[in-house]
């Protein structure tokens, strides 16, 4: 058995989601190799060689892979991956984009967003927004798998000494072209990496009121999130959305402010260690999952919280 883990990286360093994918691969068992595909990604390749438990790193360094276009990356991974028993990536927006192409090109199923490994061919994964957990067995020769970022403890980023090998396979479909990125520069931690998150829902009433949450977030070193209701209402951008259709998070502390607790939101945060809910409706479903609930008007409670945190 040998497993190919396709790394998430920014050409210079490896993203934490890759360490989680390697951890899942370890649970499957077998030799683990990592593919770093990018342009000018030598440094990321070196970083991957240091990941604990990795035996070899493949580096595909070509302009065709610069923007992780799914057509090119999918074709590369399908060609290289044909020699492995498992192809694994994180459930990042990149993994979600190219991995199904890999599976289709290899004529195998994909097992999406696994939350557990039962055996080399059997996995657990959430369905219906996490309201049920399916245990599924793949009957295909090659297992194509994406891994939920919060489901496994990441392996150590250092301590390994894998060999690095260049791959000269170039797949350039010419079917799609990158135009631009608009990446929000955050002064706060990223949602999926934050140990504390404070999120606002429809109860925030408008986008300007999110400034109250930002002030608390800055005192706690927290990320700011939003419910789908808040995103739908235009109070917050979609990349702040926590939930089934947004980001899945599991911080040490999750503070839900003015969020009723729709199923789709709970699906994205109920694995958080400690959940706090502030809502004026004492019957809001969010209180059923909250460790600490405060029935209060958020427009009084949040400034008070802000003041108490100094």
């Amino acid at each position: 058995m040998s497993i190919l883990v396709v790394a998430d990286h920014d050409n210079n360093s490896i993203k934490a989601s890759t360490l989680v994918a390697v951890a899942a691969a370890q649970a499957m068992g077998g030799d683990i190799e990592v593919l770093v595909a990018g342009a000018g990604c030598g440094a990321a390749g070196q970083a991957a060689a240091g990941i604990a438990g990795v035996s070899k790193v493949l580096v595909a360094d070509n302009a065709a892979y610069e923007h992780r276009l799914a057509e090119n990356l999918g074709a590369l991974v399908a060609e290289l991956g044909a020699n492995y028993s498992h192809i694994v990536s994180s459930t990042s927006t990149s993994g979600k984009n190219f991995m199904p192409r890999v599976a289709a090109l290899l004529d195998v199923a994909q097992i999406s967003d696994i939350s557990g490994v039962v055996s080399e061919d059997t996995f657990e994964r959430p369905i219906y927004a996490g309201n049920a957990i399916a245990t599924v067995q793949s009957t295909d020769a090659i297992k194509v798998i994406t891994v939920r970022g919060t489901a496994f403890d990441p392996v150590a980023a250092e301590g390994g000494s894998a060999a690095v090998e260049a791959v000269d396979v170039v797949k350039d479909s010419g079917l799609s072209t990158w135009v631009k990125d608009e990446i929000v520069k955050l002064d706060r931690p990223e949602l999926t990496a934050a140990s504390v998150i404070i999120s606002g829902g429809r109860g925030m009433q408008n986008g300007e009121n999110f400034a109250m949450l930002e002030s608390v977030a800055d005192k706690l070193g927290a990320a700011v999130g939003a419910s789908r209701a808040a995103v739908d209402a235009g109070y917050a951008p979609n990349d702040m959305q926590v939930g089934q259709t947004g980001k899945i998070v599991a911080p040490d502390l999750y503070i839900a402010v003015g969020i009723s607790g729709a199923i789709q939101h709970l699906a994205g945060m109920k694995d958080s260690k400690v959940i706090v809910a502030i809502n004026k409706d004492e019957d809001a479903p969010i209180f059923q999952v909250a460790d600490y609930g405060l029935v209060a008007d958020l427009f009084k409670a949040v400034p008070e919280l802000d003041a108490l945190l100094g």
Binding site: H67, S176, V179, D181, E182, I183
Partner: peptide
Amino acid sequence: EIDGGLETITVK
């Protein structure tokens, strides 16, 4: 919609 923001691409 990608992690951290937006990406624009053109497809044939």
